[in-house]
Design a protein around this nucleic acid. Structure first.
Lengths: 107, 107
DNA sequence: TTTATATATAACCAATTGGTTATATGAGAT
DNA sequence: ATCTCATATAACCAATTGGTTATATATAAA
């Protein structure tokens, strides 16, 4: 699991991730940011939950969603290795190096 | 067009990109690297062509495919801004900075 | 306890994806 | 001209995706 590629394949899901990167939101607050229906948004959330990029918390009748920074970071690093590694760009190599040196730090 | 997210969503396509990052391949050479059928591989190639990440060249009865480094680089940078920007990781910020400084260089 | 609101679920739909097999076409080699 | 091999195309299939509407359920507020 944690198929980052699947999670970020859809623009609505990317926007949800962007919103949650700022702060937490309830489902209805998220729904308000889109023109699509509540069940449609919920399906996107379900995929993000499946891929562990977002976590859910009950708060009374609300569901509060929050970005799982760690999972996103892990997935993104994997992606960078796999996709960034395809480029022969010198700068990308530098980045890979910097990341590699500091792999596993938390703050 | 050039929906990098769509292009890299599938592992077979990522492997094709990886292979083509080393050197060019004809279609049949690519097909040989997979267990799926020739039409299946061709469909993946079609998507990569649609998204401009791969280019095609006729050579007699062969089709030679090659990675479009520039398009991949562009798409990857977009992805880095959009996805990398979600992380509050200091190192990712450094990378973004380094990239930004050298944006638009070719070699 | 009724009402309002948040969330969940079901049923449905069209388009896309990822695969198959079978067959057609194109072009170089015999 | 025929054979062979590379590629293309068609028809088909099942699963997934991204959306809908309608309705059910849960919980807080009146």
């Amino acid at each position: 699991m944690t198929d980052i590629y699947r999670a970020i394949a859809d623009p609505t899901r990317r926007k949800i991730l962007l919103l949650l990167s700022r702060h937490e939101y309830t489902q209805s607050e998220l729904v308000d940011q889109f023109t699509i229906s509540q069940p449609a948004v919920k399906k996107h959330i379900a995929i993000l939950l499946e891929e562990k990029l977002v976590s859910e918390r009950r708060e009374g009748r609300f569901r509060v969603y929050r970005l799982n920074q760690e999972a996103l970071s892990d997935g993104y690093q994997k992606l960078q290795v796999e996709i960034g590694g395809l480029l022969e760009d010198k700068l990308l190599k530098l980045k890979a190096y910097v990341e590699g040196e500091h792999d596993g730090e938390d703050d």
